[in-house]
Amino acid sequence: MSLDEPIYARGKELSEQVNPGMEEALAARYDALVPGLSRMVVEVPYGTFYARGVVDEKTRLLATVAALTAQGGQTKPQLKVNIASARAVGASREEVCEIIYQMTLYGGFPAMINGLNAAIEVFEAEDD
């Protein structure tokens, strides 16, 4: 991916790599309420930020897992999506758990426990 590539195209390519079908799922659920929301999610976080190419997808997704963990339990749905995405680009279970564990320092023990619970759910789904 190149920064010269249109933002939507960059975002669509990456979002399909790490979270196939995300845009369509968002469109089906939210676009009637907020028209264009699904495209905006592809363009802004994926096309503008995640696909910059300065750091690899695994590093970027582990950073996202860290941030969502530190924010606490209200981010569980997004945390699970990003843990699964990190796994899709090569993050090991141990790396994911270590990043979540380190967030004890920034989000506290409850945030870390909530993050580990989200990771367990993702890992259990992988095993099914």
Rank of each mutant, 00 (worst) to 15 (best):
M1I: 03
S2F: 01
S2M: 03
D4V: 07
E5M: 15
P6N: 13
P6L: 04
P6I: 03
P6M: 11
I7P: 00
Y8K: 05
A9R: 01
G11C: 06
K12I: 04
K12C: 03
E13G: 06
S15Y: 03
S15N: 09
S15M: 07
Q17T: 12
Q17A: 12
Q17Y: 00
N19W: 01
N19Q: 12
G21D: 15
G21A: 15
G21H: 15
G21R: 15
E23V: 10
A25D: 11
A25E: 08
A25Q: 09
A25I: 05
L26D: 13
R29Q: 13
Y30C: 11
Y30H: 14
D31I: 02
G36A: 05
R39I: 07
M40R: 08
M40E: 14
V41P: 06
V41T: 14
V42Q: 14
V42W: 04
E43K: 02
E43L: 04
V44N: 10
Y46V: 02
G47N: 13
G47A: 08
G47V: 00
T48M: 11
F49M: 09
F49N: 09
Y50M: 10
G53Y: 00
V54G: 12
V55E: 02
D56H: 00
D56C: 06
K58P: 05
R60P: 00
L61K: 05
L62N: 04
A63Y: 04
A63H: 00
A67T: 15
A70C: 14
A70W: 02
Q71D: 11
G72E: 10
G72V: 03
P77G: 11
Q78S: 08
Q78M: 07
L79T: 06
K80N: 09
A84I: 02
A86W: 01
R87I: 14
V89D: 09
V89A: 05
V89F: 01
V89M: 02
A91R: 00
A91D: 01
S92Y: 05
R93T: 15
E95I: 00
V96D: 01
C97A: 12
E98A: 13
I100H: 01
Q102Y: 09
Q102W: 02
M103F: 01
T104A: 11
G107L: 00
F109S: 11
F109C: 10
F109G: 07
P110K: 11
P110T: 03
A111W: 01
A111L: 12
M112I: 06
M112Q: 14
L116A: 15
L116E: 12
L116C: 10
A118E: 10
A119V: 01
E121Q: 12
V122Q: 10
F123K: 06
F123G: 04
A125C: 09
A125S: 09
D127A: 12
D127P: 03
